[in-house]
Amino acid sequence: MTQQILIAVMVLGIIGAFFAVVLYYVAQKFKVVEDPLIDEVAEVLPGANCGGCGKAGCRAFAEACVAQGNLEGLRCAPGGDAVAAKIAQLLGCAVEQGEPQVAVVRCNPANCRIVAADSTSVVISDNRRSNYDGLRSCAFENTVYTGESGCHFGCLGCGDCVAACQFDAIHMGPDGVPVVDEEKCTACGACAKACPRRIIELRNKGRMNRRVFVSCVNKEKGAVAMKSCANACIGCGKCAKVCPVEAITIADNLSYIDYKKCIACRKCVLECPTHAIHYANFPAPPVKPAPKPEAPAADGASAAKQDSAQA
């Protein structure tokens, strides 16, 4: 009995020792020399591997930071300034503070929601022009045709952005256009990259989170654009005329508000004939300061618009 136990112990011991030697040898032979700094940098990153920085993942980002030695052109959007400061400390370099940003969906939910001609009421109606029956992927639907709404620039509603979000911050809204959860959004930009029509844009969050933006990317001529969607930007330029800080430019029949210049006065919102300019997080609808202040829209319309604007 004792002998058997001894044999077993010896056999296992010899096998163990043999493999230990092999493992040690292999570990020495194929050792990868790596800057320990990479591990330290990777440690402070959020670790979501969202790819927002343009690298394959957090580890790759850390490698890039260490290789470069500074943070020029490298920014971890989810981590924001806090992480940037930590990395800068590790690398021993300066860091510039960035304005916090958020993803903004620039499409009116016109598939279902049309502001009536007198702009006093919001009509909810299914305004689909066709029924998409293929693979639920925006990138693919975009190659098949114009989309259910009939607008060749508008949201396709299959949710490629939702699938791309690593932070559960974007969801399909009830009207077929995605809604961004501002609390969760880290402005990594994954959704903006996933959108085949480039509808989602990263914009500065703005003071008190208040933002004004053109919620349309339709570059067609006014009449054509209006045919696809009643809320399309027709590039009329009225907004640009009233803007006190020249933040609005018109190009290719489309108005664009530069978020760096915008002071969120909302004069353009009142001017827009197609209600394509949306605003977010303001306590009340804008009021015309004209001699005879007249509410531009009934409460229902404005409230609904703000809802969608918060999207």
Binding site: R128, S130, N131, Y132, D133, G134, F140, V144, Y145
Partner: peptide, 9 residues
């Protein structure tokens, strides 16, 4: 008439 169905081939 119904909406036309659209899909890839």
């Amino acid at each position: 008439m119904n909406l036309l169905n659209i899909s890839g081939s």
